[in-house]
Write a protein that binds this DNA or RNA. Sequence first.
DNA 1: CTGCATATGTTGCATAGCTACATATATAGC
DNA 2: GCTATATATGTAGCTATGCAACATATGCAG
Lengths: 118, 118
Amino acid sequence: MTEKFGPELMRGSLDLMVLSVLSAEPKYGYLIGQSLREASRGMIDVKAGTMYPLLHRLEDDKLIKCRWDDSTGRRRKWYELTAAGHRRLKQQATQWYEYSQCLMEMLKPILAVPPEPA
Amino acid sequence: MTEKFGPELMRGSLDLMVLSVLSAEPKYGYLIGQSLREASRGMIDVKAGTMYPLLHRLEDDKLIKCRWDDSTGRRRKWYELTAAGHRRLKQQATQWYEYSQCLMEMLKPILAVPPEPA
DNA sequence: CTGCATATGTTGCATAGCTACATATATAGC
DNA sequence: GCTATATATGTAGCTATGCAACATATGCAG
């Protein structure tokens, strides 16, 4: 396992990742963080100070909507995608795919060079 | 042709792209911008207010070094990678590749859905 | 000689991820 | 019962970086 991905690298795709893990089923903030860690085998670790403001932004933009669950001792804020959220997810996923293909093309000659032997 | 890639998307990989286009041969700032536009078929358009501060940062970090050419009427500042720059490029390219693979895995189910018919 | 492409640079703004902190409950170990 | 840890949400302030807007200057085409 390599190092955890730095914040600069994820900048610009965190929204996309959160929308992505919410697309299948509703989740609450803490659980979203766990899901991302699992899906990335520990490479992606979104901090609380990043996650909650991010969720509030997405909610302000009407891409997700929330529902408090106070039935248990643990207060949990469940989020799910709105129709606009689903649309945005598809659009952003497509754009990210195109971008990564574009960048990959540029990096091809660099990545083709094998790493120096130890 | 889709829309130009937004700044949020490129955040975190602009350094990598600049190092990448400098890896083959020295270039000056304005030319780097053109090279990126061409390599991306117009999708990537780095503004002057982004490019020059970026180059100064990379130089401060000793990843690139410059040489003025005042022999023509056009003052040009040619940049080339240092040894550290080459190392950083390989390292960042590899990390970006891993990150994109990771994200692509997450986006697979979303991208698999065909776009709605018009 | 006027306008545009070329070429480099700065200032100030907005955005978003981080650390550090604050609050509160559930659970496990002693 | 007490303590430490995991769970769960939140805020305030810092920092980094891409942007628009501006500034300066040259070469070349009409």
